[in-house]
Design a protein around this nucleic acid. Structure first.
Lengths: 247, 247
DNA sequence: CGCGTCGTTGAAGCCGCTCAATAGATGTGG
DNA sequence: CCACATCTATTGAGCGGCTTCAACGACGCG
């Protein structure tokens, strides 16, 4: 299976429409294909890149899930994002050619490595690729804006509801069930990401369970009442915005 | 004066080394110059672009200051950033060709408009420009990561200290005093940006004043003890990171 | 001068954190 | 296969920092 996976090309990758190749012609895809590297899968806990390490590539998740976090090593880290198949990470290194955060696999994960210098050159030659890269960068910035909005305005309950709803949407886009999935991250990581403590998150899961919104079994989560969950996300305006994300 | 400003070129702009033109050759600058538009200055409160509006350009601040915010119109907005001369804004629109947040001038401000389609084409022809744009995007993402770290890990006192120290650094890079400056934003905006209430920010200013860290007079701020202020930002690891920002 | 906005200061309450104990899951070696 | 150690998740009790609600003062602008 792994050997098979390693041979997969952007042409045949079912994630391509989420990823960088979307909208490219076959001949352009070929050229992109030539610069893509597909290293051995990372196992849970293995580091893709490290804060302070030199930046030479951006990465597309092929399978599994990763987290990125910044901050000190003394446990005061802040998780900045979780990345699912088809999503791009590593953009933060573009500034000074140094990564400012660390990327770690949450479970066995495969990534495609896109050496940045080669990608840049290719962007000059393939306008569609440049445009696509810009779009994905714009999406990344947009996601971070949403996160900042959440950290600044939302209480704990709203944060977890938003997290579940948007995660469900991301799974759905990838062809998985939007109502039943496995959380790839620990409660600790999830709490950290949401700016809360594991205890609070645990209590919230309990409350949601009691109210018939979800079922949980360890890392498995089942969303029982999506509409009520969306309502929990916040006022009417957010319901609209999140509904848009869900389709 | 305004007429004079309008005639300024990237070649002669003293902000060019902070901005997009940095590292470009004279001939390349000329080509960039041709796509730059310099609309009339915005007055305090005027909108540069609006959430939901179509994205067709990114903007470089030439003078003044702007804020961007997302969220609902019902006063539950979240301020995502303040932009000073030499800084780029509008990148969030790259995703769907729609702005997802609103940009408003905090005081009389001039911006350079960079029509995105033309800029993209130019990036294909001028590798140095593409590289520079990527770097500035990387910086933007890095700044947002710092902000997320702050929102997730720092208490109110640390947040205000971080804000003052980094703002001082930004003024210094622009040739202004790093120890004495005017805050272009209201207390309300500042509090919102920091994820706090105006009351809390006001109390913190009071505490800092009492402890001899700062002097304040309306929007004027004087930093009296930078090193102690840096210490307040957090543990030792952050002191190092922020010291690096200060040089 | 009167009005509105902004900033400051005070008092009280609440949400999420801290500390602590327990239960459950995982992994390891005997 | 089980006993043991370790780590994660959950639940409870008490506390504290920030918010909320309110009043007051300082400007700025008509």
């Amino acid at each position: 299976m792994d050997v098979h996976e390693l041979k997969i090309s952007c042409q045949k990758c079912r994630l391509s429409e989420l990823c960088l190749p979307y909208g490219l012609e076959s001949e352009e895809l070929d050229r992109l294909e030539h610069i893509v590297q597909r290293p051995a899968p990372l196992r849970r806990g293995e580091v893709l890149y490290r804060a302070g390490g030199s930046f030479h590539a951006i990465y597309a998740v092929r399978s599994g899930a990763l987290k990125i976090f910044s901050g000190s090593e003394d446990g005061h880290e802040q998780i900045l994002g979780f990345y699912l198949p088809g999503e791009l990470l590593g953009l933060d290194g573009m500034d000074k050619d140094l990564h400012k955060c660390t990327a770690v696999a949450l479970e066995t994960s495969s990534v495609c490595t896109l050496p940045f210098n080669q990608l840049s050159v290719l962007c000059e030659k393939i306008p569609g690729l440049q445009k696509r890269l810009f779009r994905l960068i714009g999406r990344e910035i947009g996601v971070e804006h949403e996160l900042l909005l959440m950290m600044g305005q939302k209480d704990a309950e709203e944060r977890l509801a938003i997290f579940l709803v948007t995660l469900a949407a991301r799974f759905k886009r990838r062809g998985y069930s939007q109502s039943e999935f496995r959380l790839p991250m620990s409660r600790h990581d999830l709490a950290n990401y949401l700016g809360l403590t594991p205890e609070t998150v645990s209590r919230l899961f309990g409350r949601f369970r009691k109210n018939g919104l979800i079922e949980t079994n360890r890392s498995l989560v089942k969303l029982l009442d999506m509409s009520r969950l969306v309502t929990l996300c916040a006022g009417p305006e957010d319901a609209g915005r999140l509904a848009a994300v869900m389709n």
